[in-house]
């Protein structure tokens, strides 16, 4: 009987830990996604301004180079593929890919979605200067959101871990 109780208590503790970790990881992933989108936008901006390269190539290279070693989800490669196959124009392709991207990464919040959604519009502009200005504005706003999200991760992440562990311990006490 005692053995069973010990096993049950350990399982509750592990579940509590995993639950807390999941919340903390979601917060960390959100910060990472914003950070990498910002890096990607800076890369895209440079490639367009300096090389005048075609968007499909820029987006595909961006997916290869910026996200090469990081295991961070991104919509750029699927958008590049879609416009390369000429299935949709950049605006439509961006919207379609974002729907899947958001569905797969539910920790992305409306706050950053608002700016991420504008990237498609910005990339469809004919004027490079206006495009660059637009991308910089998006980057600035995402940067602010990233800083806030980072602080929140540090503060709330620890709290989530502690709270879930405390809950697990309380549950064990109640059951025993």
């Amino acid at each position: 009987m005692i053995t069973l109780k010990i096993i049950g208590a350990i399982m509750i503790l592990i579940s509590g830990y995993l639950f807390g970790k999941h919340i903390k990881d979601d917060m960390r992933k959100r910060t990472e996604v914003i950070n990498y989108i910002n890096k990607a936008l800076a890369y895209i901006d440079n490639k367009i301004i300096i090389e005048n390269a075609y968007l499909e190539d820029v987006l595909s290279k961006c997916a290869d180079e910026i996200y090469k070693q990081a295991n961070v989800p991104q919509p750029f490669s699927s958008v590049s593929e879609m416009i390369y196959c000429n299935k949709q124009n950049i605006n439509e392709a961006w919207e379609t890919c974002l729907t899947d991207f958001y569905a797969e990464n539910d920790y992305i919040k409306n706050e950053e979605k608002e700016y991420i959604s504008q990237i498609g519009n910005c990339l469809s502009l004919a004027d490079k200067e206006r495009q660059s200005e637009g991308l910089k504005t998006i980057m600035d706003n995402l940067d602010k959101i990233e800083k806030k999200a980072d602080e929140k991760t540090k503060k709330d992440g620890k709290m989530a871990m502690r709270t879930s562990m405390i809950c697990a311990v309380l549950l064990i006490i109640l059951i025993i």
Binding site: I48, L55, I90
Partner: peptide, 15 residues
């Protein structure tokens, strides 16, 4: 839409 596709979604490159 055709125009955008002809310009390979890169209107800036065809300005």
């Amino acid at each position: 839409s055709i125009f955008t596709r002809i310009c390979r979604n890169s209107l800036y490159a065809f300005k």
